[in-house]
């Protein structure tokens, strides 16, 4: 298989977005139905609550070559499961500083609150995040260097 990466003109980051089912995923749906665009390299994984996101998932994403990981949940106080986003906030504060310590720029990770009514905000947040990660360039620090099958 030809290496397509060398042919790419400009760098487009690959971004994994975790969105909670009740607020942010619905916010992303609203952004969609309102035709509020954001770059196609943002790909959303639906989780019931932001607190379902294990720090392992974020590490896995970076290991697998994601250039940025964003986690979106309900606004504090509005969590569908009452307290889930508070746990997320604490866990991610720790994880993000840990990632920073490991040499992964802090700006590659982000935690944002987006409600179901905030399609506009969802689109704005994603545009801004993609811009930030694009400026940072490719994430090489944690990429899995093991020889892959077929290489």
């Amino acid at each position: 298989m030809q290496d397509v990466k060398t042919e790419k003109k400009e760098f487009t980051p690959n971004i994994v977005a975790f969105c909670c089912n009740w607020c942010s995923y619905a916010g992303a749906d609203l952004a969609g139905s309102s035709r509020l665009s954001y770059p196609a390299n943002v790909k959303i994984i639906r989780v019931p609550c932001s607190c379902r996101v294990n720090p392992m998932f974020v590490l896995k994403a970076f290991q697998q070559g994601a250039d940025g990981v964003i986690l979106c949940g309900c606004h504090p106080g509005d969590c569908h499961y009452v307290t889930g986003n508070y746990y997320t906030r604490r866990r991610m504060a720790l994880l993000y500083s840990f990632l920073n310590y490991m040499g992964i720029e802090k700006a590659r990770t982000r935690l944002e609150w987006v409600s179901a009514a905030e399609g506009q905000r969802f689109s704005a947040v994603m545009n801004d995040f993609v811009k930030t990660v694009t400026e940072l360039g490719e994430n090489k620090r944690l990429t899995d260097l093991r020889v892959k099958e077929g290489e």
């Binding site: 607190c51 379902r52 889930g84």
Partner: peptide, 27 residues
């Protein structure tokens, strides 16, 4: 909600329909 799944230090707790393996494979 899955709050317990992430809290569990031994990784014993999982969530049906949104298991750790499922989300990892999505990533």
């Amino acid at each position: 909600c899955g709050a317990c799944t992430v809290t569990c230090p031994s990784g014993a707790m999982d969530l049906k329909g949104f298991s750790s393996k499922q989300i990892m494979s999505e990533v």
